[in-house]
Amino acid sequence: MLEWILTAIVRALAVSTPLLWASLGEIYAERSGVINLGVEGMMILGALFAFVVAQVTGYPVAGLLAAAAAGGLAALLHAFVSITLRANQYVSGLALTMLGLGLAGVLGRGWEGIPLLNALPEISGLTYLGLLLAVGLWLVLHHTRLGMVIRSTGESPAAAEALGVNVHLVRYLCVVFGGTMAGVAGGFLSVAYRPSWTEGMTAGLGWIAIAITIFAGWDPLKAVGGALFFGALFHLSFRLQAWVPPEALRMMPFAFTILVLAATSGRRRGRGAPEALGLPYAAGER
């Protein structure tokens, strides 16, 4: 029994790694007031570029850096459209998901079916770094001036601007940071979790990362719990097949997301979304 639980915890840690990285990035983007539904698209681009660069250079870490750059660039597009052009953030994010999946599928043709020989171990630096990052990002968000600036940008951009904050700049930086994190999450999949590239390999993990962001109440520390919870659920959906019908288990992570959101939401203070989340901001307009 103890071993059963231990292995489940180890698996939860492994699966939670990409979820944690992606959701930490999304938390910062959303804290600054910009929701980015393009996580899936940024992740898959990260996965492709990480694999290609790791394969060509022989250094998986170089691959992860490339993944971060690819995710960041993709996020920059979202930032430009939703911050500078003040377009609808939801639709822009969906467009990014389509574009990312599309580009990765088109550009990745020919890289399938090649093993990555010097892959990173699965429970590796990324897992621990992710946990450290969660603590660090929590400290920054809640105990530094920078964190206060980010939060105020997401809560009340007009007030932030009155205090001399460059709202657009802060939002740009947070969104791009979110993209680099999602890129690394995707890179983890292709150079560590399952070292090879296949079109569509993110298989919905990006959406779960967005769910974790909300589930965690936009708090980096709680995101650790959220990522572990969903990691465990995903693993258990195969583990428990001997006792529960497989179809029911396969839908479990998704059904649970809804249940958990329902159970933890409500009108309690402090759990809510940043006030200005999803609202474009034009300097001096309101």
Binding site: G41, G102, V106, E199
Partner: peptide, 23 residues
């Protein structure tokens, strides 16, 4: 003889340009 994902590229680009031009 292009990869099937090319449709997603088109959809994504069109959507981006549409919302980008909204202003």
């Amino acid at each position: 003889q292009m990869p099937f994902r090319v449709t997603d590229v088109f959809n994504g680009l069109i959507l981006f340009f549409l919302i980008g031009s909204e202003r």
